[in-house]
Design a binder for these strands. Structure first.
Length: 568
RNA sequence: GCGCUCUUAGCUCAGCUGGAUAGAGCAACGGUUUUCUAAACCGUGGGUCGGAGGUUCGAGUCCUCCAGAGCGCGCCA
């Protein structure tokens, strides 16, 4: 039960019954926790919202509404209207113990329409392993999927494999030269446009070992097979990197398959019918300095009619399809599988692509619920110095390497701890230091302490606790914890609504903090020890409370896919 | 030149989508353990929310302009 949403609906119902005119502004009304404790437990902003419509002082409106609400709710022992027009409510003491006992197994799950959602993330090119730069989008996407599932949605996690085009040729050629280097002792060409990385050598060795190809004398002859095998190995590397942070996609869609199925031809037919394609010229791109640049005629899509900065090419002058064209085909493929919502997660370096792909998706289907989320860069530091992770240099840090030195829990927690819009400074040394600056341990420690209490009593935390007397939980520290627990559903629904899972670890940190404070109170005051031996009912009530704390921490850590620690 | 994102305490960041006296962690300083795990807790100091205008009852949050940082700007993928 989300008490804020719950009371908002209750208030609205009463006001409607009493014929208070609300001008269809219900969506803007907000019941939330007041900024300061002295204002009470709930605050209602309705008067300020209504005052924009009824040209009246919000304070006066608030007083009138307060009068109506006062007569209809018995659970509050204080109502008041403050300055601009806040209506504040304070619950009677026994409300909170009643609230605590009402929490069921699906506590926190919002009461929303359940949707079928397609979530595309990672989609790194199949030309090498995943590096740290991919890590954030991967963790964000996976956590988002967990969050959406927690909220009751059905989520398909999808990876789009760009196994087609120029870069694949370069990749295959790179593998080819490494193979020649090993078998025929030729030197790997330095100045050609090739990937030099160490992993290329590993892939080369594996391909030699598998002996599917016997003659490496002519690249053109074995190109297709070698490409296929190279991509297979790259995908294996990528999947094992993903696995190291606990990520498993449901579905891999290969660009080459879409090309075979001629979906792009379908797109062209569809867009031609709607008069959205034409043969035309594009201006010279800013980034091209070549003086000999010539404008050439090619097939263009009117993306500028849908908010893009300019129209985009679907066909190269030689008649082959552009990357963009195939990507539209992929999105048509997505649409044909018919989901309620589509989410793409992109790295900051692809943010410039959003307008383009969004306009094509809208052109394919009106009113589509399609959203792109961008994760900003992660800057990696080690001993105060920035760490480079360029693919060209061939010396980047793989996700696996990061995990083996820092641990999956810390990486997952830290990568999702911040809003995706801000860049992260990820310092190896700090996160490796497992004691101090690492919030993940703080949360896990709370869980460990809770478990230690149950161990002390030889009880299983999963067993039912029948507490009839939760009203014994009347210390301020205990009420504060219950209030914090009451915020959990709101954290979830806000996170889901805005696709912002970072609120979850923040909240877990706050809840853990209140628990650690509570724990320490027992050191100076025997009566506040959780295992206060003189009063069995009180101990039972407190066990009930800390069990619920753990329950919420567990739900949160499951969303983050961070392990639950019972002992430290 | 254009587009996207960002600018909040010394540092790293939250800020419930326009509300009340702007919050955490780290770092600094001081304190708390015969008792459920001190990997913890408490206290203190620290702010012109990048700058200037605007919108209104009310702006860290919205609009415009300016400055700075990052990413991008192919007929590559």
């Amino acid at each position: 039960m989300n008490i804020f949403e719950n009371y908002k609906q209750k208030f609205i119902k009463v006001l409607k019954d009493k014929n208070v005119e609300l001008f269809d502004l219900e969506d803007k009304f907000l019941v939330e926790k007041p900024k300061l404790e002295k204002f009470g437990d709930l605050t209602f902003n309705i008067a300020m919202i209504l005052s924009t419509k009824v040209k009246k002082n919000p304070y006066d409106i608030a007083c009138q509404i307060e009068e109506v609400l006062k007569k209809n709710f018995k659970e509050f022992d204080q109502f008041n209207v403050i300055k601009p027009g806040f209506i504040n409510f304070k619950f009677k003491k026994d409300f909170w113990s009643g609230f605590l006992s009402s929490l069921g197994d699906n506590y926190g799950v919002p009461n929303l329409k359940r949707n079928k959602i397609l979530l595309e993330f990672v989609s790194a090119n199949p030309t090498g392993p995943l590096h740290v730069g991919h890590c954030r989008g991967a963790v964000y996407g996976d956590t988002l999927a967990n969050l959406l599932k927690f909220a009751g949605h059905t989520v398909v996690k999808e990876y789009y494999v760009n196994d087609y085009g120029n870069q694949i040729d370069i990749f295959a050629k790179s593998v080819y030269h490494r193979i020649k280097e090993i078998l025929h002792k030729t030197t790997f060409p330095e100045n050609k446009n090739l990937y030099p990385g160490q992993y290329i050598k590993e892939i080369a060795k594996d391909i030699i070992k598998e002996k599917k190809i016997n003659n490496y004398d002519n690249f053109e002859k074995i190109k297709d097979l070698l490409s296929k095998e190279s991509i297979l190995h790259a995908m294996k590397l990528i999947k094992s990197n993903l696995e190291s942070i606990g990520i498993k996609h449901d579905n891999f869609v290969y660009e080459s398959n879409l090309v075979k199925q001629k979906i792009i031809e379908k797109v062209v037919t569809k867009l031609t019918k709607e008069n959205l394609l034409y043969d035309g010229f594009l201006p010279k791109p800013k980034s091209i300095k070549d003086e000999n640049w010539v404008k050439r005629k090619q097939l263009l899509f009117k993306s500028s009619s849908f908010g893009d900065d300019e129209d985009r090419a679907l066909q190269k002058p030689d008649g082959s399809w552009t990357y963009f064209a195939n990507d539209i085909a992929y999105h048509l493929n997505k649409i044909e599988r018919s989901f309620d919502k589509y989410i793409n997660i992109l790295g900051a370096d692809h943010a410039g692509y959003i307008k383009r792909i969004t306009s094509s998706v809208i052109a394919l289907q009106n009113n589509i619920d399609f959203k792109c989320k961008v994760t900003q860069l992660v800057k990696l530091y080690k001993s105060g110095k920035p760490y480079k992770m360029s693919k060209r240099a061939g010396d980047f840090i793989e996700v696996k390497d990061l995990i083996s030195s820092v641990g999956s829990d810390a990486v997952r927690f830290m990568m999702v701890y911040r809003n995706t819009d801000s860049q992260i400074d990820f310092d190896f040394d700090i996160v490796t230091d497992k004691s101090k600056d690492n919030p993940v341990f703080y949360v896990q420690y709370a869980s460990a302490r809770i478990h230690s209490i149950f161990r002390k009593l030889n009880k299983n935390i999963e067993d039912d606790i029948k507490s009839t007397n939760l009203s014994l939980l009347n210390d301020k520290s205990e009420i504060d914890i219950i209030k914090k627990i009451s915020e959990w559903p709101k954290v979830i629904s806000l996170s889901v609504k805005n696709l912002e899972p970072h609120r979850v670890p923040y909240y877990l940190y706050e809840l853990s903090s209140l628990f650690h404070f509570y724990w320490n109170l027992g050191k100076s005051n025997d009566k506040l020890r959780i295992l206060e031996n003189n009063n069995e009912d009180l101990v039972t009530a407190r066990l009930f409370l800390i069990k619920k704390i753990f329950f919420v921490i567990k739900s949160g850590l499951n969303i983050l896919n961070v392990s639950i620690v019972k002992e430290m």
